[in-house]
């Protein structure tokens, strides 16, 4: 869990980044790492402040790990993006929907429509399943003259 919303300037801060670095050091490079955060760690749309001021530092720490998924919120809509091999997923909100990045001059919520009262609202369920066993196969041909 990375807190990038408690700070008024939307920074993660040195203390959390140090903790993250120390925690990641204990993990194998191929370990499955799931990160929860509020704002996008990448520059989704800085014109609407849809970014984290020092998010690039967190992503730099995560990059050596090959199996990283980030779930975040803040933008009140479904969005999926890759930064390198790191997957970022945001989900809908239950309160109000926000516009697609840059689709209107201001980031004001989409107007409520009585004809479609639940438009743009929702939530996400994530199920994690272990991958099936992988088989390493070695073939042995019969050879004459060996005992």
């Amino acid at each position: 869990m990375i807190d990038n919303v408690s700070d008024p300037g939307a920074s993660i801060g040195d203390e959390q980044l140090s903790w993250l670095a120390a925690d990641l050091e204990k993990q194998a490079p191929e370990a499955r790492i799931v990160v929860f955060t509020h704002r996008p760690l990448f520059d989704l749309y800085p014109q609407w402040d849809w970014a984290t001021r020092d998010g690039a530092r967190a992503l730099a720490l995560l990059m050596p790990h090959t199996n990283v998924t980030v779930f975040y919120g803040h933008i009140h809509q479904e969005h999926h993006q890759m930064t390198g091999h790191i997957a970022h997923h945001s989900a809908k909100s239950l309160i109000f929907p926000l516009p697609a990045p840059g689709s209107q001059p201001k980031r004001t919520p989409l107007a409520w429509d009585s004809a479609q009262p639940y438009r743009g609202l929702g939530f996400r369920e994530v199920e994690a399943e272990r991958k099936n066993a992988q088989y390493n196969i070695t073939e042995f041909p019969v050879q004459k003259g060996t005992s």
Binding site: P8, G9, W48, K106, R107, T108
Partner: peptide, 18 residues
């Protein structure tokens, strides 16, 4: 025309400070 905004949370209404 390019937008600018307040990026230091300043209270309820901060999101509209542009």
């Amino acid at each position: 025309e390019f937008s600018f905004h307040c990026d230091l949370f300043c209270g309820s209404g901060h999101e509209d400070m542009t």
